[in-house]
Simulated scan of single mutants.
Amino acid sequence: MAPTPRPLEGKTVIDFTQIGAGPTCTMILADLGARVIKIEPPEGDIGRTLGPGWIDGVAALFHGFNRNKQGLTLDLKSEAGPGIALRLIARADIVVESMRPGVMDRLGLSEAACKAVRPDLVYCSISAYGQTGPYSRRAGVDGIMQADSGLMSLIGFPDTGPAKVQTPIVDVFTGYVAACGVLASLMIRQGDARPQLDISLFQSAIALQQASLTSYLADGDEPRKQGSAAPGLATSRERVTNRQDMVAALAQPFSRRTSAEWFAVLSEADILCAPVATYADLVRHPQVVHGNLFGTAERPAGEPVAMPAPAIRFNGTERSAMTAAPTINSDPRSVLAGLGFSDDEIAIAIASNSLGPAR
Score class of each variant (00 low, 15 high):
M1S: 13
P3A: 14
P3H: 06
R6Q: 15
P7E: 06
K11C: 09
P23E: 06
C25M: 05
I28S: 00
A30N: 04
L32F: 10
K38H: 11
P42H: 12
G47L: 01
G47S: 01
T49A: 10
P52I: 05
D56Y: 15
G71F: 01
G71P: 02
K77A: 11
I84P: 00
I89M: 02
A92D: 03
D93F: 06
D93Y: 01
R100L: 07
R100D: 07
L107G: 07
S110E: 00
E111S: 14
A112T: 14
A116Q: 08
V117H: 07
R118Q: 14
D120Y: 00
L121E: 02
Y123G: 01
G130Q: 03
R137M: 11
M145H: 11
A147P: 02
D148E: 15
S149M: 14
G150R: 08
S153P: 03
P158Y: 00
T167F: 13
T174R: 09
G175F: 07
V177Y: 12
A179C: 07
L183K: 10
A184R: 12
S185W: 02
L186N: 05
Q190T: 13
D192P: 00
Q196G: 00
D198H: 09
S200W: 00
A205N: 01
A205I: 06
I206Q: 08
L208C: 08
Q210K: 09
L213A: 12
L213D: 10
E222C: 06
R224C: 09
K225C: 01
Q226K: 14
A229M: 09
P231E: 07
L233H: 12
R239N: 09
A251S: 12
Q252N: 14
P253D: 06
S267M: 02
D270P: 01
A274C: 12
D281P: 06
V283S: 11
H290T: 07
L293H: 02
P300G: 07
P300N: 09
A301Q: 13
E303S: 09
I312M: 10
R313A: 11
F314G: 04
N315G: 12
G316A: 07
M322L: 15
T323K: 09
P326I: 02
P326A: 05
S330C: 10
V335Q: 03
G340E: 08
I348T: 12
S352D: 05
N353I: 05
A358K: 15
